Computed example of a mutant assay.
Amino acid sequence: MATPAFEDIAETFDFLGDWEERYREVIDLGKAMPPMPEALKVPATKVNGCASQVWIHPEISAGRFDFLGDSDATIVRGLIAILRAMYAGLPVSEVEKVDAQAELARLGLDSHLSSQRSNGLRAMIVRIREAAREAA
């Protein structure tokens, strides 16, 4: 149940050869993501359980889910961009139905992230699902 934006990322990752190329792509995705206003980087938007500083601010419009996100770590910013592509534009009721781990496994991220990064990624997914549940 991936969005077209996530499918584009998955297709790009299929085309890329080794993990180093994929790693650079994750970083590039983070660099291309719009910045999150500093005013939104508050304790209420901070994601606990991440080794880096991570903020996620949900935005719901006409029953559709989106979010702004940021991190002080370049690779994590890229992971946020991937999550944003996975969830942005979905109906709020569909957010929890996304098998994020399976979708991310398609990118090969599961076997190349440190345990701390993997834990942080799971914490971000939990935050996104909680925000959608609260908005529903």
Rank of each mutant, 00 (worst) to 15 (best):
H112T: 06
I9H: 02
Y87C: 12
Y23S: 11
V26L: 00
D70I: 02
I80V: 15
V54S: 05
G17N: 13
N48E: 15
G69A: 05
M1Q: 05
D70C: 03
F67I: 08
H112W: 03
G49K: 08
Y87I: 12
A136F: 09
A62R: 14
I80F: 03
V92K: 09
R77I: 02
L107H: 11
K31S: 07
V95F: 08
D99P: 14
A136V: 13
L83C: 08
L107F: 11
F67V: 01
E103Q: 15
A131N: 01
S61Q: 13
V76I: 06
F15P: 04
I82F: 08
D66Q: 13
A136W: 10
F67W: 00
T74W: 05
S52Y: 02
A81D: 01
V26T: 12
P4L: 07
S61I: 09
I60C: 11
P4G: 04
W19H: 04
A73Q: 00
L40S: 12
I82E: 11
P34A: 13
L29N: 06
V98G: 09
V76Y: 04
R129M: 00
F6Y: 11
S115K: 06
A2E: 05
V54K: 00
A136Q: 15
V92I: 15
E25G: 04
L121R: 01
P35V: 12
Q101S: 14
E25R: 15
T12Q: 13
A32F: 00
I56P: 05
L107E: 03
S118N: 14
G108Q: 08
R129G: 10
E21R: 04
L79E: 02
R64Y: 01
K41V: 02
I82C: 02
Q101G: 13
E130W: 00
G78K: 08
L29I: 04
I80Q: 07
E130D: 15
A100G: 07
L83Y: 01
G17Q: 08
I60P: 05
E134K: 15
E11W: 11
I56L: 15
Q116E: 10
E25C: 13
M86F: 05
G49C: 01
A51L: 00
D8M: 05
M36Q: 14
A39P: 03
A105S: 09
K41M: 15
V47E: 11
F13A: 01
A73M: 12
I60L: 12
G63T: 02
M36H: 07
G49R: 00
R106L: 14
E11K: 15
T12A: 14
L90A: 10
R24D: 12
A10L: 00
A100H: 07
L107R: 03
A131T: 10
A102M: 12
S61N: 14
D28V: 09
S93G: 10
I56W: 09
D72Q: 10
E103L: 14
P58V: 02
I56A: 06
A10Q: 15
P91V: 06
L113M: 00
G69N: 07
K41C: 13
